[in-house]
Each structure stands twice: as C-alpha cells, then as structure tokens.
Design a protein around this nucleic acid. Structure first.
Lengths: 149, 149
DNA sequence: GAAGATTGATTCCTCAATCTTA
DNA sequence: TAAGATTGAGGAATCAATCTTC
C-alpha cells in the first residue's frame, strides 16, 4: 500500500505530534507551579488582547476552535475560580460577554512571563528567528485554508 | 501588559488553531462517508507502516502522544470493530502487540486514497510544494525539540 | 524494585435538544 | 425562522492504583 508513504500522510502526522508534544509540555510546565490548565491561560490571553477585555461567547468559541457548549462549561469553571465573569451584551439581549475580572488580569500578569519563557525553551529555542517567522507564516496559511473549505 | 503581543504567544496560538481546524475538517470529511474517527485511521496507518504490521502498546502510545491507559481503551474499541487485534509478545511476556487484521488492512486500503485527497484539499492545496516541505521540516524540529525538554 | 498493560474514578468535550431573544 | 447560549446524555482522555512479568 504505497499511498502510506505519501507526504500528505506524514504532514498531518507531524502536525498532530508537534501540537501534542508542545501542549503536553506546556501543560506540565504550567501545572508545576500553578493549578491553571493551559486552556484557561489561552482564554485569559484572548480576552486580555480584546477591546475592553471581553468577547462574545460565540466568538470566543470560534477563536478557540471548540464547540459553544464546550465553551459554556469552560467559562463556568474559570468563572467559578473568579478569573472571568459573564456580563449581558447591551446590543443583543440574547448574547453574553465573557469578561476578564481584575483578579483574572492579575493572575495573567503573574503567569505570562513564565509562560513566554516556557514557550521559548520548548519551541523557539530549537528554531532560528527566520525559521520561527516562517513557521508562523505557514501555520497561518494552513489555519486559514483549512477553515474555509 | 505588553508581553501579550510577544510572538511566542502567537506562535502557540497558531499551532493550536491550525491543528484544530485541520483535525476537525478531516474528521468531518471522514465521517461523512464512513464511521471511522481520524484517530482510528492514525492507528491503522502507523501499524501498516511498521514491520509485520504490529507495534508494542507502549510504543504506539508514545508515537500517538497519548497515555498508555488512553491507548488501551482506544485499542479496545478498534479491536471490537475487528480492525486490530492484540497478540502476545514472544520476547517479553509482559508485553502485547497491536496487530493489523486482514479486515483492518482492507478497510485502510479503501480509506487511504480519499483521506490523502482530503488532506490535499484541506492543507496542501493552500501551500506551494516548497512551503509544504518547509512546514514539514519545521514541524519535525518543533516536535523533536519539545519532546526532549 | 521497575516496566508493560489494564482498570476505576474523574474530568472535560461533543451532539442533540431546549430556552430566550432577534 | 434563525441565532446565542445552556443543559443532559454519552464518549473518550487522564491520573492513580493494581496486576503480572522482567
């Protein structure tokens, strides 16, 4: 079955393995000192980078590439920890904003420097600056291509 | 909090998003015609590429970047479908091989051409040949770097 | 004692159905 | 009727503990 050696197959295998190794590693790094899963940090970061530190639930779910029900429960847990809160959306009474709380912003500020260092050590240290930029360009292409198809 | 604009953060975000978009897309493609999850296909492919179409459970778990207990249950399901079977390992009575069955090989041969086409359309069509090779080189570096750290 | 594999308990994600508002 | 968000039910992954063999 010679199609098994098709580079297409290997490409997806590499994407799976690189993603899993990096995420598991970062998860270990993060939980070594704190109790926060990486996915929580990902939520906090996305909120902090948005205007008014808030995003619509649906939009956040799409950004995170998880289902809306998955996001509902994820926000439930982060909200229970006091790091985000839900606020009604003024323009649309169906909608809700997930909003970073002061505590959430504080915890994020504490965690980010170490997290950036973890990424540096686990990923970027093994790439030249040029390689890293190239990888980001290619991943952006892959993400956008796979999304619209 | 200006560290939020650090390219390190964005790099990981891109890895998460590209991986999720590609995998969800391929999952949709695959389940549109068959009942097999992509992860099953990933197992069958790895076995088919190995000598005697078999791998030790622990080794397969490491290749797939999942826990050994996760692999035990995954093989349970694929074995129940008749696509793989467990066989004792002659050299080590503690160990087991996951082995591709004739049915598994048959199903794989049917699925691979379409799967390769799906990957082509979702991923490679958005990249030049040179870009694809470059992406594979970089993902290999990232995987190996993150693993040993 | 350590390694390979499995099991029980728990966690978290998804799909389908539901409720509210546009 | 459709869109935003949540809930219940079910599936699948993990950790810690266990059993067998090295």
């Amino acid at each position: 079955m010679r199609e098994l050696d098709d580079p297409q197959i290997e490409l997806v295998g590499l994407l799976i393995e690189a993603h899993a190794e990096v995420m598991h590693g970062l998860e270990r790094d993060l939980t070594a000192t704190t109790e926060l899963p990486v996915i929580w940090l990902s939520v906090l970061i996305r909120l902090a980078r948005s205007p008014d530190s808030r995003l619509r639930m649906t939009e956040l779910a799409r950004d995170m590439v998880i289902s809306t029900s998955g996001l509902t429960r994820l926000i439930d847990r982060i909200e229970a920890a006091g790091l985000v809160e839900r606020q009604p959306c003024p323009q649309d009474r169906r909608g809700l904003h997930a909003v970073l709380t002061p505590l959430g912003r504080e915890r994020l500020a504490e965690l980010i420097p170490k997290h950036v260092g973890d990424i540096q050590r686990r990923v970027s240290d093994h790439l030249s600056d040029k390689d890293r930029d190239e990888l980001m360009r290619l991943l952006r292409k892959v993400r956008n291509g796979a999304r619209t198809c």
